[in-house]
């Protein structure tokens, strides 16, 4: 319990660092990078938007990617390969905000989407739609962007002036903070279902985690007592306890936040290099309830 609280505070500090790094008026990352490459653009989240360049990258529109974005994309992919979805798990303030807000609401008011709906096809279905949409109806990169709304909240002093909102901005806010945020178990419905940045990182992580030198969430099967504390702590619903007491791990929506590691009383979950310990590197089905039995 104490470990969980400490981890929550540690992560909150990281997310504040993320806010200082990427959002105006601070935007320390952009200011440093723009100064380095002599790029004369205002420093805020839009000038670093990864949604548009990811779209351009995946659609092969290389010429539209400016050097600062190229550097950022390079760092983004390098971090995702080596450390997993580091941006989601540590730096994305827009993802963290609804998660932390939802902790203020009693669980009985929250919807547990991920036990009813498998988030993985939804997550990748959104990514696929996101890439197809520019050919059919025009890009939705900015229209449904929670990072952009986050910048509005900061510009307006959180409770002040949000600026002129479009229908798509209003829908984004409703989904991000209200329906898939405060009233969703874990508070990360938006991250789970409708974030292309998260989906791309997950895709990279699911492949790179098979390499020995990369960091990943590791599992020591022999230590696990199937208590389910990690399942409860996971805001993404990546860990589930099956009826036969087995714990399953879904790497495709894990954000490597390590809340599960902090919650585990047996240190069965760790973050590091080497073998993951999950069956076939993606999911574990720990169907040996006898472990629990034998400890008793």
């Amino acid at each position: 319990m104490i470990n969980t609280q400490i981890m929550l505070i540690k992560r909150a500090i990281w997310y504040i660092v993320g806010l200082l790094l990427f959002y105006a008026p601070f935007a320390l990352y952009q200011k440093a990078l723009f100064g380095l490459v002599n790029y004369n653009k205002p420093a805020d989240i839009h000038s670093l938007c990864l949604r548009m360049p990811l779209l351009n990258l995946l659609l092969g529109k290389w010429s539209l990617i400016v050097p600062v974005v190229m550097i950022t994309l390079f760092l983004f992919f390098m971090f995702a390969i080596i450390f997993g979805p580091f941006f989601c798990g540590r730096l994305c303030f827009a993802g963290a905000l609804p998660e932390y807000l939802s902790r203020l609401i009693p669980d009985r008011f929250k919807i547990d989407w991920v036990t009813g709906i498998n988030p993985i096809p939804v997550r990748y279905g959104f990514l696929a739609g996101y890439l197809i949409t520019p050919f059919l109806a025009g890009s939705i990169a900015c229209a449904f962007c929670n990072l952009s709304f986050m910048q509005r909240l900061i510009d307006g002093g959180f409770w002040g002036e949000f600026g002129v909102l479009s229908s798509t901005n209003i829908i984004t806010f409703f989904l991000w903070i209200i329906l898939f945020g405060i009233f969703t178990k874990g508070g990360r419905g938006f991250c789970n279902f409708i974030c292309p940045i998260g989906a791309v990182q997950s895709l990279v992580y699911s492949i790179s985690s098979r390499l020995h030198f990369t960091y990943k969430l590791r599992f020591a099967k022999d230590k696990c007592i199937s208590c389910g504390a990690c399942v409860k702590a996971c805001s993404m619903g990546s860990l589930q306890k099956e009826p036969d007491n087995s714990i399953t791990y879904q790497i495709h929506n894990c954000i490597t936040c390590l809340q599960c590691q902090a919650a585990c009383p047996k240190n069965a979950l760790t973050y590091g290099t080497g073998k993951s310990g999950w069956k076939d590197g993606i999911t574990l089905v720990n169907n040996e309830p006898s472990i629990q039995e034998s400890i008793r």
Binding site: N118, G125, F193
Partner: peptide, 20 residues
């Protein structure tokens, strides 16, 4: 799984038309 994937891709494309 496939149906959910296609459904969500469809919803996303639909949201593009809505935006338009």
């Amino acid at each position: 799984t496939l149906c959910l994937f296609i459904f969500m891709a469809g919803i996303t494309v639909g949201s593009g038309y809505y935006k338009k």
